[in-house]
Design a protein around this nucleic acid. Structure first.
Lengths: 350, 350
DNA sequence: TTTGTCATGGTCTTAAAATGTCCCGGGCTA
DNA sequence: TAGCCCGGGACATTTTAAGACCATGACAAA
């Protein structure tokens, strides 16, 4: 059943919105027993006219009855509400989750896509699409955007379709970090170039490994080409980054056993742009990288974090506590978990 | 899954239409491998501009890819089509059925609502709603409408909500037949008055029993009041009638055993406005009633038949063969059965 | 190489729908 | 009886959809 909704959403993007609006109106009418148009409009924050269009429709569908004393729900409307309840729950549940997370950590926007991207490639794609949409929502025509690597970011790049009117030919996409691991598709360089091409923007590449020894760092820091692009990266107005599980990242980086143990003992749960964070969002381990430094991130105007799946919920939560995120894009599985942890924390405090 | 669609349809009446349109477009694009806007518009009977609005949406949803050589379906679009196939089947199946029945019997309109009104009260309500809508589609402001009794007609009366702009205050609703059985709600008189009230029209009542002996008929025929209303009934431009199973009707009418047997032996399967019809749509038995005569029905401009349920499919089919129906409103259960019989007949002919 | 065809995407105008706003007469309640 | 809120009508205004064309570019056939 849930599945059908997901399918429909693709062909009718504003289905959910309309469904929710009408459900809310019908629900409110039911709760009010009998209510007038103006009163209802006020309590739903709608204008009289738009509400009227909706109630006319509800009436023509036989879901409400209207007479001179006001509107009331019909039997058909009542039974429809019953049937709709489980759907509405999931419809609104995500909104509530978004708002809870948003307000708890003072973000400007939280987007939760339904599903679990660990188990469903569809959800992963949705996550990418939501991320793309969020980025386009803040993107200006002359921005510089730094992006990290990872499979989620790669999906986002694929799903990036700019709305027709705007031109981004003066925008720059740059990788936020160097090369990491073997897979080409999920390199920050690849993603920066894909995104740039998709929106018709410029891009620069950073040709260094993500993890550097002291010597290598020093010598690369001398390279004028590298220095120039690093300058650009650090001046980005927008950062889009994946959030990694700390342990998993140590493996992907192929760190030596000793370092892995060290990082574990420091209580790291999350990794992003070369920094390891513990559960409280504090930086507990720093890798020597060429890309963004902590101070750059703090200074950056818009930080967009994208990650989903229950396994990453702890990592995502840690990044939220770090406090530099502005926009979070995640999936239901992770968001539910984070919501639960927020609740538990509230209980502890009281 | 099917259920959810039914629920949504109540809050989003044109959901199906939109879904079908977009599905058709996407499907056509898939079949065409690659195709241009104008060509596609021509093959789908759409104007270029409206198609463009749709394809822009499909593109923004990532379901198709557009470049300078034309449009082609994307992987996401392809997998969506796969998922949508079973839904589309049921979506279009009813359309095909409607058209098949319509063209076979030369009706002007056939409406098939999904489901089986024998098992689902929802479907019965849908049937009523569809009937109401069909009536409003042909109703003029100064019409006379004759309606029979029955539970389906009663449901239709309840679901009759006129669109706001038109006034029907010069229209007249009259019962097509007299009183029958005990239940008040399903009397033709009740239904005529309910319908009239719901659309703001006038009504007249016919105060005679449905089934008359010769003596009673003669004496009532003398009554000036009765004669006047019968005149009105026989001049109706529109008839809305239920279709009954012959055997069931003999019971409801509480006919004596001998007559029941007689009617059965005559091969009657359907009953409507006091006439019994065999499988070929021929009148095999006539009851002496005060209401409509066969010649009135033949002369009537718009005859709307409403009935659903598998058990009534034979009766409905008989009425179609009778050849006086203009609009048929039925449910999926009956329509599927009728469709099957049409196919069998075609095979017999060949 | 040229030429014709078909593609997309832009633009302008027109038509239609949605919306904001106000008002009227009618019940209901105090 | 007075006042209040009701639905529904009316209307100006804004927004959106649709129709009609055109510019430009890719591609294939001649």
């Amino acid at each position: 059943m849930r599945n059908l909704l997901e399918i429909q959403k693709q062909l009718l993007p504003d289905l959910m919105e309309t469904l929710k609006r009408r459900y809310t109106i019908l629900h409110q009418i039911m709760l009010s027993d009998i209510i007038g148009r103006r009163t209802l409009a006020a309590s739903l924050n709608m204008t009289e006219r738009t509400l009227r269009a909706e109630t006319d429709l509800l009436k023509s569908q036989g879901l409400i009855e209207i007479d001179s004393v006001g509107m009331r729900i019909s039997d058909a409307g009542r039974s429809l509400l019953d049937l709709l309840e489980p759907i509405a729950k999931s419809l609104f549940g995500l909104d509530d989750l978004e708002e809870k997370i948003r307000s708890t950590y003072g973000l400007s926007k939280v987007i939760v896509v339904p599903g679990d991207c660990e188990t469903s490639p569809f959800t992963k794609r949705e996550l990418g699409r939501a991320g793309a949409k969020a980025l386009l929502g803040v993107l200006r025509s002359d921005d510089t955007i730094a992006v990290t690597g990872g499979s989620t970011l790669a999906e986002m790049a694929d799903q990036l379709t700019p709305p027709l009117p705007l031109s981004y030919k003066d925008a720059w996409f740059v990788p936020a970090r160097g090369g990491l691991g073997e897979s080409m598709e999920i390199q920050a360089n690849t993603i920066a170039s894909t995104m740039a091409k998709r929106v018709g923007a410029q891009y620069r590449l950073l040709h260094v490994p993500d993890l550097l020894g002291e010597d290598a760092y020093q010598s690369l820091a001398q390279d004028s080409n590298t220095r120039e692009i690093v300058q650009i990266i650090r001046r980005s107005r927008i950062i889009v980054h994946g959030i990694g599980d700390a342990i998993e990242m140590t493996r992907r980086r192929k760190l030596d056993e000793a370092t892995v143990l060290e990082i574990q003992e420091e209580g790291a749960v999350a990794e992003s742009f070369g920094y390891y964070f513990n559960e409280d969002g504090q930086v507990v381990h720093t890798m020597l990288t060429m890309g963004l430094r902590l101070e750059d991130i703090i200074r950056t105007e818009v930080v967009v974090g994208i990650a989903g799946g229950k396994r990453k919920s702890k990592a995502i939560h840690a990044m939220l506590r770090f406090g530099q995120e502005d926009i979070l894009v995640t999936d239901e599985a992770a968001a539910v978990e984070i919501g639960r942890e927020i609740d538990e924390h509230v209980q502890l405090v009281h």
